[in-house]
């Protein structure tokens, strides 16, 4: 059961990563682009089980 919850969390992180990338592609302001990338890094590090 714990594994199921953990998998849901990884899915959640994956979903948020997709949203961040989607918004990164959509945005036209350079500052927002930089910020999306900075925010994305921790989500990807967790998604790929690196940190």
């Amino acid at each position: 059961m714990e594994l199921v919850v953990t998998i849901i969390y990884y899915c959640l992180v994956g979903f948020v990563s997709v949203l961040l990338i989607y918004n990164l592609i959509k945005t036209t302001e350079w500052q927002k682009e930089v910020l999306y990338i900075i925010v994305l890094i921790p989500f990807l590090l967790r998604l790929f089980m690196l940190k």
Binding site: Y9, V13, V16, F43, R46
Partner: peptide, 10 residues
Amino acid sequence: GAMTYLDINL
């Protein structure tokens, strides 16, 4: 450092 508030961000 960027990882610090991952859970709080979630």
